[in-house]
């Protein structure tokens, strides 16, 4: 394993120092990333967090029109309640705080414990669970939260910026989650700095279908195929769960080690697939947004837009990872 790190132990700390140095709009304090501008009175605060290794998620989405604070845990390890408590108290502008939580046992438990400890702040929670590779049944921990997290953070962040009350912000966040679905495919495993070797072995002739964003193995292996075929596999899985129809927000997301050129190749196929189903890509993102360290592969996330969601998606945002309109 070769990684641009100092030590496996210090990688999260060192990366946060780099973020702080690179982005004067951010403040990093005790493992929490805040907007430098601080909380705004009367605005609902948005806090998210999760394991590190998914950059730019979440810390890269702290800023105007998105998050107020992000709580990065160790690599692939949920943050601890202390971080979340600190963040929640710090960003409360008196209108309460929304926790945006990806549906993983660790994230859920640590955010729950934190919420209990913040009895002085009005806290609401939204659980993101968009990954159709996982059956949402009694026999699983429930669908994982993956790409839709970005959509939820963006849309809820825009509504909060406009001064909406906590209940409204939580409602729109849940709505984005309900309308969103994802599916991911890995060409290679990632390597965590602590383990120092690939989480799983994948021969050069195979791909792993239905992977998450923590280097978890997927549900099934199939022979390597063309971008067109792989895009179709992902899109059929999404379509089978939430029929593609109307105006869609579509993200073709790289897992961290896949070059942008290849993501555009995939996007072309995804767009053609969607057209073939009579739906329309109305907004899109192509790039590395919700990653899994150095994994090669991609995920597709689709959200069925309506007028309100489109307006909120288009609203100005100014974060290291997503920026437009200012």
């Amino acid at each position: 394993m070769k990684k641009l790190i100092n030590t496996a132990q210090s990688v999260v700390e060192d990366a946060l120092s780099g973020m702080a140095a690179a982005h004067p709009s951010l403040r990093v304090r005790e493992r929490v990333v805040y907007r430098a501008s601080g909380p705004r009175a009367g605005k609902v605060g948005l806090v998210s967090g999760g394991g590190s290794g998914h950059e730019p998620l979440h810390a890269g989405f702290v800023g105007y029109g998105m998050l107020d604070a992000a709580c990065p845990g160790e690599v692939f390890t949920s943050p601890v309640p202390d971080q979340i408590v600190e963040a929640t108290r710090a960003v409360d502008g008196g209108a309460g705080v929304l926790h945006i939580v990806k549906n993983y046992t660790g994230d859920v438990l640590n955010f729950e414990l934190a919420a209990e400890l913040c009895d002085d702040v009005q806290v609401a929670s939204v659980l993101v669970d968009d990954d159709v590779a996982v059956e949402d049944s009694l026999y699983t921990a429930g669908r994982r939260g993956t790409g839709a997290t970005l959509f939820v953070e963006k849309v809820a962040g825009a509504l909060a910026e406009q001064g909406a009350p906590l209940a409204e912000v939580a409602r729109v966040a849940a709505e984005v989650d309900e309308r969103s679905r994802s599916f991911g495919i890995a060409l290679t495993s990632c390597t965590t700095p602590a383990a120092g070797k690939p989480t799983f072995e994948l021969p050069d002739t195979q791909v792993e279908l239905g992977i998450g964003i923590h280097g978890e193995p997927g549900r099934r292996r199939v022979p390597m195929a063309s971008a067109r075929e792989l895009a179709a596999v992902a899109m059929e899985a999404v379509h089978g769960d939430l029929p593609l129809a109307g105006d869609l927000l579509v993200m073709v997301n790289g897992m961290g080690g896949t070059p942008l050129m290849e993501l555009y190749v995939v996007f072309a196929e995804v767009e053609a697939f969607i057209r073939g189903k009579g739906a329309r890509v109305s907004r899109s993102l192509v790039g590395n947004y919700v990653t899994s360290l150095d994994m090669q592969g991609f995920s597709v996330t689709v959200c069925r837009l309506d007028g309100e969601l489109t307006r909120l998606w288009d609203a100005p945002v100014d974060t290291p990872g997503l920026r437009w309109g200012r």
Binding site: S78, V80, Y104
Partner: peptide, 10 residues
């Protein structure tokens, strides 16, 4: 609880 995170910490 304060130092581990993940599922196993809590």
């Amino acid at each position: 609880i304060r130092r581990v995170g993940g599922a196993s910490g809590p």
